[in-house]
Design a protein around this nucleic acid. Structure first.
Lengths: 197, 197
DNA sequence: ACCTGAACACCGTTCAAGT
DNA sequence: ACCTGAACACCGTTCAAGT
């Protein structure tokens, strides 16, 4: 029985969740420059300093947002199917999280500590799935993760043009299908084996 | 017969090149936060406002730095060999430019306009090389470019730990070798053909 | 043409004080 | 426990003025 998200019923205090929600909204609207401790406080009808009671500092705020967004990627993953389907699902969800909040992702990219924290769990999960599939799982993991991050970056650079964003999302799915194709898998495994020997 | 780079012989004025050099040094030393118009001016022994005589604003400064770094990637490329070698060389150089100045790359990533400008020429060059090699050249180009960008991001997140940076550089070369392997190429072409039909 | 000084409208964050 | 007001040490950039 957790408290409902958002602002509390009629207390005039600010909750941590309300702060995170407002911060994400500011980020979505105006990007990194639009999210300042002062603008955030103003949106919540409160003094900037009161924010520091719920959040350590601006970097901590970004890390909390990243934890919320990328933590949700891992929740409710279907592990029952074949590994390839699991890998596709994991990466597609990861990419879709970027699509949902590109400005947050960009801010995370710029904050190496937060970035490493956000991608570690997903990377670990992917490693486990790949280990069941191929001996060259570390090579594969790096290729797939790096490709996902680069695709996310391309989407961010496309800047909110909805049509182009959809095309990029479709392109990512196609590229992922190709990379996870059984023939490609076999060829890459073979190539990885030759390179390591 | 161009003027030599750096500060002029004994004039007390600042050249645009001197500004770019100092800005890159600040970026390398302390990252994005370390490069301010004020710190840059101080390093050059000049008033912040004099910088605006050689550079439009901070964003223009970053774009100029990016043009210099990524423009050099395209210069003196050996086009005579087989296309695969050309592609490998282009991407390796691109990645090495990131390795040389990760902080600049990160700043560019965060500035979509500058990012698009920097990668366009390289992307175009790569498209041309791939077109001579495979019908699925657009799919390939996106995979290779996205993978390169994501690998660069991983390197940036590793934060100046020299040993780890070298390992990542080696890993990038191996991944690139695998992706450009003839078997992989064949499999990806096949997969791309099936996906488009 | 090139540089300066002062000023404007901002930042994140600290500190001491209120309830 | 939670919030406030004032202050500190910064930003990028504009403007009017100097040479």
């Amino acid at each position: 029985m957790t408290r409902p998200r958002g602002r509390p019923a009629r207390g005039q205090g600010v909750t941590r969740d309300a702060i995170l929600d407002a911060a994400l909204a500011l980020l979505d609207e105006d990007g990194d420059a639009g999210l300042t401790m002062r603008s955030l406080a103003a949106r919540l009808g409160v003094t900037p300093m009161s924010l520091y009671h719920h959040v350590t500092d601006r970097a901590g705020l970004l890390r909390a947002l990243s934890d919320r967004l990328y933590g949700a990627v891992l929740q409710g993953l279907d592990e029952s199917g074949d590994p390839v389907a699991g890998i596709r699902m994991l990466l597609t969800r990861y990419y879709d999280a970027v699509v949902a909040h590109p400005q947050l992702t960009l801010a995370i990219f710029a904050e190496p500590a937060a970035f490493a924290g956000a991608s570690r769990e997903i990377t670990d999960r992917l490693t486990a799935l790949l280990a069941a599939l191929t001996p060259a799982h570390l090579l594969w993991r790096d290729i797939l993760v790096d490709h996902a991050h680069g695709s996310g970056l391309a989407l961010i650079a496309a800047r909110a043009d909805a049509a182009r964003v959809n095309a990029l999302r479709e392109a990512y799915r196609q590229a992922l299908d190709c990379l996870l194709d059984s023939q490609t898998t076999a060829a890459l495994n073979d190539s990885g084996r030759r390179a390591s020997s």
